[in-house]
Design a binder for these strands. Structure first.
Length: 283
DNA sequence: GCCCAGGAGTGTG
DNA sequence: CACACTCATGGG
């Protein structure tokens, strides 16, 4: 099944390639393949249009793609607010097409617990290993991300063998704590409360709680601080200190759309490290 | 071989 | 509060 979607502005390469998602891969032809719920999906960008193909024989999945790509976000409004920041202003227009994605809460929680102290290629490998071993088959190539009951069949020892290392015990513990529905009860909780709940979970600290708040629960005011963001805040804003200090700084500086500011800073910092240019002024 | 990675947990001063 | 140390391992 094939259909077209209008989302503007959007840049698929930026959105799916900037490290928010761990199951989307860019093919040699420039298309992106990934999995949403129990469907394998291929997206291709042609100018401002998104062409989508889903697993044959399934119903229309355009709604889940629109939700995944947060098609309702008013990028113009978000950027005009963030442009008031003199550091962001010079460069963010070039990242107009970068959209925060909306991930499944459970998949997001597990993925970002795995993401601790690992690089992105390795995170992708770990996430894919969970799908390959515990998810439902969708196509010859791909499986769904395992839900809680599927993943709870895994024991920490098995998971460690899949290359998860010390993270295996956290995954096992998280499966014990939840059933298939209980995470979604947090979906209407205000950000600060949600975050307080999340940091109590095994393997979840400040940074992972903010990633899950942002990408899993769609709280755009969340501002995850990893090593790259820490560097960016130091370099561009002369800010150092504890996580909570930096988080407070970001909240007062970027406000309700701090999550978008974070993605701009994150992407910029990584591109800069690879000598692929710097969007923001250095002064 | 070396350094680093979308950190978290635990213990100590 | 701040820091130090450990955790396992693959990617560049």
């Amino acid at each position: 099944m094939r259909f077209e979607l209008e989302i503007a502005p959007i840049d698929l390469d930026l959105t799916l390639g900037c490290g928010q998602t761990f199951r989307w891969e860019r093919g040699l032809d420039g298309s992106w393949s990934g999995v949403l719920q129990d469907q394998a999906i291929r997206l291709r960008q042609i100018e401002g249009l998104i062409q989508a193909e889903a697993t044959p024989g399934r119903e229309d999945v355009s709604e889940s793609i629109l939700e995944f790509l947060r098609s309702q976000d008013d990028i113009a409004r978000i950027q005009s607010k963030l442009r008031k920041d003199r550091v962001l202003a010079p460069g963010i227009k070039r990242m107009q097409g970068l959209r925060i994605v909306k991930l499944d809460e459970w998949e997001c929680l597990i993925s970002y617990v795995l993401a601790t102290y690992a690089n992105i290629p390795r995170i992708m490998k770990m996430v894919e290993a969970l799908a390959a071993n515990y998810g439902d088959p969708i196509t010859r190539m791909r499986r769904s991300f395992p839900n809680r009951s599927q993943l709870s069949r895994a024991k920490a020892k098995d998971l460690a063998k899949l290359g998860l290392g010390y993270r295996a015990k956290y995954i096992e513990a998280l499966c014990e704590l939840f059933d298939d529905e209980s995470l979604s009860t947090l979906s209407r909780v205000p950000y600060e409360n949600l975050r307080r709940e999340l940091v109590e979970l095994p393997g979840v600290g400040n940074k992972v709680a903010d990633c899950v708040s942002l990408f899993g629960f769609g709280r755009l005011e969340s501002f995850p601080i990893d090593l790259w963001i820490e560097r960016a805040l130091k370099r561009l804003y002369r800010q150092t200190g504890t996580y909570n200090h930096l988080r407070g700084f970001a909240a007062s500086r970027f406000g309700e759309y701090a999550g978008y500011a974070q993605e701009y800073l994150y992407h910029n910092e990584r591109m800069r490290a690879r000598n692929l240019g710097c969007a923001f002024s250095e002064e």
